[in-house]
Amino acid sequence: MFDPNHYVHDQSYVPPINRPHAIDQWNDRTPAELPFVEAWKSAVPVHAPECDADSTRLYVPYDALLVERAGVLRTVLHNDGRIDRNGLSTCPSCEGLYDPLRSDGTCRWCDAPLPTRQTTSGVTLVRGGER
């Protein structure tokens, strides 16, 4: 299923945060070594229909889903397989999920080089003009 927020949501935009709940859940459900706002900015937009959210992002190192509903960053959930992985790829080095349309050729999680040719959702992406 196509989620328009998956592709158009500005990575630098941070919705208002449901305080203290969202911050508390971030601290309770993750090691919280990264500030919550920074995790939102670097997380991968994903489609997670079971989260009842307007947009959801996955912070891969903690396998945490950051849930936004009605313009407010509401809560943090454990990713228990509820996301639709369609359109995402897996880094061959760290096995972290990433969006190949948003990648710059290196994994955002481990800095390893990503394949120059990859197929995702029936589309083959080629970096560097190779055929």
Rank of each mutant, 00 (worst) to 15 (best):
D84Q: 06
S12N: 12
G71H: 06
E38H: 12
V72Q: 03
N18P: 00
D28E: 15
I83N: 01
Q25W: 09
G81F: 07
P16C: 11
D111C: 06
F2N: 13
E38W: 08
H6E: 13
V67M: 02
V72P: 01
W109Q: 11
A53H: 05
V123I: 14
M1Q: 07
W26H: 07
F2M: 05
A43C: 11
E33L: 14
P35C: 12
A64L: 06
T30R: 10
Q25V: 03
N5L: 09
D99H: 02
E50H: 10
V67G: 00
M1A: 11
P115A: 15
L114V: 11
P100I: 09
Y59P: 00
A70F: 12
S121W: 05
D52L: 14
N18V: 03
Q11S: 14
L125N: 07
D52W: 04
A32N: 09
Q25D: 13
A70V: 01
G129E: 05
T106D: 01
E38Y: 07
C91F: 02
F36I: 11
V46L: 04
A53M: 10
D104F: 00
E95K: 15
R19M: 11
V123C: 07
R29V: 09
P31G: 09
S103W: 06
D111S: 15
Y13Q: 08
V44E: 09
S121D: 14
L101N: 09
A39M: 01
H21P: 10
Y13D: 09
